[in-house]
Every structure is written in structure tokens, then in C-alpha cells.
Design a protein around this nucleic acid. Structure first.
Ligand SMILES: [Mn+2]
Ligand SMILES: [Mn+2]
Ligand SMILES: [Mn+2]
Ligand SMILES: [Mn+2]
Lengths: 218, 218
DNA sequence: ATTTAATTTTAGACTAGTCTAAATAATATT
DNA sequence: AATATTATTTAGACTAGTCTAAAATTAAAT
């Protein structure tokens, strides 16, 4: 039996370690889950004993295959619920995360597979993140942050890194969303801000924004 | 803050006490929640302190208005999710209860109100039970158990008392469901079994079945 | 190579919820 | 009315998860 709390730890470790590929240290987990480092130490010991990850004292943890399977399954549920909320229940992309955080823990194979079919097997969630299929397979779209884009080229917005309500509302208020066409006009070396063209208008976004907006060449 | 466990206790007490109108004793709660009487005592003390019910030692508990509000809201969520599972996700009426038991605890006003609208404001759940509106109002249909029906009259099946998978599958295998027309042919005094006519065929059902099937005169 | 700082772990305590076993109260039976 | 039975509560212990404060380890800076 796996608990809701254990699932949250495993998912956090999965994301912090780039899909479970890198080691993750204690403080990073504590930060992500808004808890204390000592609590994390206790939990990773337990998760290690249960076979979800490998733990070396003072070194950090890395997910096992078993741990990655759990993580991917939760991510799958999280993203499918997000699609449901936006497509069927009139949620906006800045409202879904909090609710999906709870729905992702509902345990029913039939529920999630039927939900997926009901939504007609969506490939991406409302933030542009890929949705794993029932076998845990998914492909990452090759995308580049606006901060790493090239001046003069034209891109489509395909995702966001920061999924906080604040950031998403900022994008909304500037008419930036998935599918928006963006031309990179100029990069200011002084503060790394970027001048872009969208909907025939020009605007300047900060480095912070440029780092959290993912694009794909058209 | 109210916990998931507290919600389950309050809902159980609500059902055991006929919509929170009657006192409920410790053992009944323990039985319903598959827990021990001593655990119940601890919990009702806490729920009493939190104002969800009135507790008198050795006497039992009865829900306060605050407690009833919580209960009705959980029942609302439970039944709306059941409708969703049957109407949209191809669940059968014997599969929904277990999953709804978890979904009912997801806390989001917007979620449940949008879900209700998405389902086009259903009046009844898949077992014929009424769904409270967002203000907690609902009306009980006037129904009678097959065991209390009158010989010679014709009824429609409008609900079930026992919602266990076993009972519902029994009904399925005999082609009895909500809306089924049933004529009461004969009541056997010896064992209180009932002979009925449905779909032009005759069959005999046990007292146990007769007590758990709700009908309405046509 | 020491000292300092940052990170991580341990030790001990706390809450929520549960259990068993013993004690108490209420009810039923003689 | 006294006794036996049942229902309920108390006492003490346990697990999951968390915290603070102190100890131990690792990494950084002299
Ligand atoms: Mn979560
Ligand atoms: Mn998302
Ligand atoms: Mn429940
Ligand atoms: Mn139901």
C-alpha cells in the first residue's frame, strides 16, 4: 500500500530529478513540498525501504524503476484531470493545478482510462506538458525557452515552465497562450529582457518571463 | 479545517440517523465505518468539540445544523460524481460507489458546481437517490419498498436501499433497473417472498430483495 | 590544513487516528 | 432485587507524518 503523502514525495522527486534521472537532495525536496528537511529524511528512508528510490546518506536520492512508474502514473492522472477541468468544466489554466493536486490521488484504473477516452486521448495538458499513456510512455516536445530563442525568428508558444496562477494570469492579461505566434525582435543585454511581436503589437518581457515561456519554431 | 476522516464519520452518522434527525449510538457508527467502538468514542468527542454534533455519554450522538450541512454537502458530491461516472465514463451502477467514496472528499466549490451544470443538473443518482442542490435542498421522492407494496397494483422501480455490488448485480441479471415496471402478483405469507411480473415474465423474489427495492405507483 | 558555513541527520516530542484490554454504565433476565 | 449480559468509555500503546533543537557530515573559505 502506498499513501497519498508518499505519492506526493515521489512525484516531487521525479520532477526535481528531471524525470527521475538525476539525484535529488534533501533540502530541494523539503522546499518543493513546503516541509522540513528532517521530515524528508524520515520519509526517504521509508521510501527507500519500500523500494521506490535509492538513498545514500548525505548524498541524496534517485528514483528506482518502481518509483518512476508510480511518478509517471500520478503525472498522467494529474494532467488528464487538468484537461478535464479546462475542456469540460470551464476552468482556466491558472485554476486547475490546485484541484488536480488532489484528484491525482484517486485510485481507479478504470476511472482514469475511461476519463482519457472521454477526453479523446489528449496529448498535452493545459500548460503544454505531455500526457503519458496507460503504459507510461510519452514524448517530450522539443521546445526552447524564450530566453534561449534566436532574434529574428518566429515561434509558437507551446508551454510554460512556471505554472503558478500569478504567471499564468500575467500571460492572460497580455494575450499570450498556447498557440500564440511570437516573433523575437531584440534581446537587451543589460537585463536580459526580450522585445517580442505578438498580434501585430510589440512588447518587452522580463528575463523572468523569458525563462518560463517555452516556444517552438514555426 | 475538517479532515477526510471526520467527513466520513459525519456522513455515516447522517445516514444512520435518518438525515440527522435521530440519535445514533456508538456501535452502529463503528459497524458502519468498519472500526472499533473505542475509536468512535474518541472521534465523537472531537466532533462534539468542533460543533458538528451533540454527544451525551452512553446516550449517543445527533448532528447539529452545522453537522448536517457538512453531511448534505458530501452526499451532494458523492451522488453527482456517481452520475458522472455512469453517464460519461461507462461505469455501471454497481461500480460507482467505491470511487465516489473518494471523490466526495475533493474540496472545490467551483468543481462541484461546474460538474453539476455539466451533467445538466440531475435530480437523482444512479441508485435513485435525490441530489441536493448547492444550497443543500432536496426532496425525497415518496416511494415504498416492494415488501410494503400492495398485491394487484403496478409500480415503477425508482430506487434501491442496499447499494452493494452484489445486490445490484443480482438486479442486473434479472433485468431489474430504475424505470422497470413491476406488477405485484402474490405475497407468500410463509417466507414473505413476493411473486412479481416484469417484462411479461413472472418471477419470485425473496424478502431480502423485497425490502431493498423501492417502488412508486404508476 | 584549519576554520567556517551550509547541509543533512538524529533525538525527542507532538497530533490524528487507530487498536486491545480493562473498567464502567445501562439493559435484560431471573 | 440481585445477577448476568450488552453497550460504552477509559487507559495505554501503536503507526504515519510532522516539528524543533542539537549533533554530525560535507562543502566552502580562508
Ligand atoms: Mn498531490
Ligand atoms: Mn499542468
Ligand atoms: Mn468517503
Ligand atoms: Mn448512490
Amino acid at each position: 500500500m502506498i499513501t497519498l503523502t508518499e505519492e506526493n514525495y515521489i512525484k516531487a522527486i521525479y520532477h526535481l530529478g528531471k524525470y527521475g534521472k538525476e539525484m535529488v537532495n534533501t533540502n530541494a525536496i523539503a522546499e518543493a513540498l513546503d516541509t522540513k528537511a528532517s521530515s524528508v529524511t524520515d520519509m526517504v528512508k521509508k521510501l527507500s525501504e519500500k523500494g521506490y528510490l535509492n538513498y545514500k546518506k548525505y548524498q541524496g536520492v534517485i528514483l528506482t524503476e518502481k518509483g518512476k512508474d508510480v511518478a509517471v502514473n500520478i503525472v498522467r492522472k494529474h494532467r488528464l484531470w487538468e484537461v478535464f477541468l479546462v475542456e469540460k468544466l470551464n476552468f482556466t489554466w491558472d485554476e486547475v493545478h490546485e484541484v488536480a493536486e488532489h484528484l491525482e490521488h484517486i485510485r481507479s484504473e478504470k476511472l482514469i482510462n475511461e476519463l482519457e477516452a472521454f477526453l479523446e486521448f489528449p496529448m498535452y495538458d493545459p500548460h503544454g506538458d505531455p500526457i503519458p499513456d496507460r503504459h507510461g510512455n510519452f514524448k517530450n516536445i522539443d521546445k526552447v525557452a524564450l530566453a534561449q530563442s534566436e532574434v529574428g525568428k518566429v515561434y509558437t508558444c507551446v508551454g510554460v515552465k512556471d505554472t503558478s496562477s500569478k504567471f499564468l494570469k500575467y500571460l492572460d492579461s497580455n494575450n499570450i497562450g498556447l498557440g500564440t505566434i511570437i516573433e523575437v525582435l531584440y534581446k537587451e543585454p543589460f537585463d536580459n529582457s526580450v522585445k517580442i511581436k505578438l498580434n501585430a503589437a510589440e512588447m518587452v518581457v522580463s528575463q523572468n518571463v523569458a525563462k518560463n515561456l517555452f516556444l517552438k519554431e514555426v
